[in-house]
Structures are given as C-alpha cells and as structure tokens.
C-alpha cells in the first residue's frame, strides 16, 4: 500500500498537437486507485482530449500514459478496455437500434472474444450466461424495468445511466465519465450522483469531466483543473473555487479579483 502501487493511472508530460494547434501541453497528474477525481476547466481546455488520449482515440505527441506502472500507448484503442479502461461519452453513444440488455452485453465483449463465445446464441434457446449477467447488472443498478426495450425510445437520463452500466459490464478498473450530468435536471443529477457513488464504493476508480460544480463537489474528492491545455490546479475539490488561477480561468482577471473579495462562486 505504498508508493507507486497506489497509483492506478499516471500521465506525465503529455502533449497533444494537431498541426500547429497545441491542445494539451505538458499535462501530468496521477489518479490514485479507488479515487474519485474530477477533471474540470472551461470549454476547450482539453478535458475531452485527455480522455481521448487515455482511451486510445488519439496518440499523444509526447509524454507517457501508464496504467499500473505499464505504458498503455502501444495498445490500440480496441485493446485498452481489456486493460481495464472503460468510458462514457459526452453525447450518449449507445447503439440506438439495440435493446438495453444488448447494449450491456456489448459491454461484456472484452471478456467474450473467443470464436466459441462469438458463435454461441445469446438468447435463442433460453437465456445465455451473458444475458443473465447483463440483466443481473441492470437489476443491481436499478435499471431492470425495460431490458428488452430499444434504447432510442428511452428518456435521456435513463440512457445516460445505461451508458455507464455498459462500461461497467467490462468490469473496468478505471471508468472515464465525460460530462455525465450534462443535460440532466436537478433530480436526475441527484439520482446520478448516488448511482456513481455506488459504483465508486464497489471499487471502481472514477475520473470525471464535469461542468456541474455541485456534482463535482459532492462526488469527487480531488480535482485537476485545465485551462488552454495546461494544468493550473491539482488538489481537493473543497478549495478549488478559491484558487486564484482557477478563478481567473473561469471569470477573467478583473472579475476574478472582484469574486475573490466577495463571496466566491464559480460555474
């Protein structure tokens, strides 16, 4: 329980450039095992880029990304879920023509890649093991009302949760959540927060990109703040809104001073 064994994911000196445009510059931070960490910053700060670098959608221009001390950069995006990295997306990206339980079964794919598993029917003659597992997971997450329903017909808030459950079906060590509360109302956000806390208690490490500071403070213990692709803050979520650099990033230099003297309130 000491030193680097506590670190699940580690980014060091990560740069990403698209031609002349630098999207992240020299970003380094560690995500401890079991952490609930937020990745925040104004629009265009490079948060989603960091997610895309971790999940293998982009390759960093320079720098290292390690999971449990091993570099993951040699693994193509398809293999990273097998290392234990699963993610959700800013805009829900469930398969609209598949049912809820089929989407979740797709999440299990990484554990069912043999030819035999691919060719065994999932639900032709009774329930397969995979289907039973997917339904059990949905039940555990309180989403078992409509396993056979096609996803496109379901409410937004429910689809957001189902996307998280699909990622969980891969039994990941690290779950990347890209704006899980975007587009949700207050009650839905509250329900999602409890839902994510439950997932965290089951031992999954969370790295969350989120604009809703209420959710960030309630769910996450630590935060990394990015601005223009640079890390400007790393520390507890309780004090993030008092940090002068963070205030400046969100409000601009003049307003930040005013906010600092009065009651501080960001986002």
């Amino acid at each position: 329980m000491s030193g680097s064994s506590d670190v699940l994911l580690s980014l060091s000196g990560v740069w990403k450039k698209f031609g002349g445009l630098t999207v992240t510059s020299d970003v380094s931070f560690d995500v401890p095992r079991g952490a609930r960490m937020a990745l925040i910053g104004p629009n265009g700060a490079g948060k989603t880029t960091i997610f895309n670098l971790i999940s293998g959608f982009y390759e960093p221009t320079a720098g290292k990304i390690e999971l449990e001390g091993r570099s993951i950069l040699d693994y193509p995006s398809r293999k990273r879920i097998g290392l234990g990295i699963a993610r959700s997306f800013q805009n829900i990206r469930l398969m609209p023509h598949l049912s809820v339980v089929e989407n979740v079964m797709l999440g299990q794919q990484v554990h069912a890649n043999s030819v035999l598993d691919m060719l065994k029917p999932l639900s032709l003659f009774g329930r397969s093991r995979w289907r039973a597992e997917a339904e059990a997971l949905l039940e555990e997450m309180g989403l078992d009302t409509y396993p056979g329903e096609v996803v496109a017909t379901l409410p937004y808030g429910v689809r957001k949760k189902i996307e998280v459950v699909r990622a969980l079906a891969a039994r990941p060590k690290l779950l990347l959540l890209d704006e899980p509360a975007a587009g949700l109302n207050g009650a839905e956000t509250q329900s999602l927060t409890e839902f994510l806390k439950g997932i965290s208690r089951s031992g999954v490490t969370l790295l969350v990109v989120e604009h809703d500071m209420g959710l960030v403070r309630e769910l996450c213990d630590t935060a990394v703040v990015l601005n223009f692709g640079k890390k400007i803050y790393e520390g507890s979520t309780a004090h993030v809104q008092e940090d002068p650099l963070v205030l400046e990033a969100y409000l601009g230099p003049n307003h930040a001073k005013a906010a600092k003297s009065g009651a501080s309130h960001v986002a």
Binding site: S55, G56, F57, S77, R78, K79, R80, I81, G82, R87, F89, R93, M95, P96, H97, L98, E102, L106, G107, Q109, V110, N113, R166, A170
Partner: peptide, 16 residues
C-alpha cells in the same frame, strides 16, 4: 449490428 450503429464505440468496447 453494433458496428452498423457506431463503429468508433464498437471498437472501444473491444470488438474488431
């Protein structure tokens, strides 16, 4: 069917 709906996500879920 997943590859038909969203090939990027299907890839990230571990499907070739």
């Amino acid at each position: 069917r997943a590859a038909h709906d969203d090939e990027v996500v299907t890839d990230l879920l571990g499907v070739s």
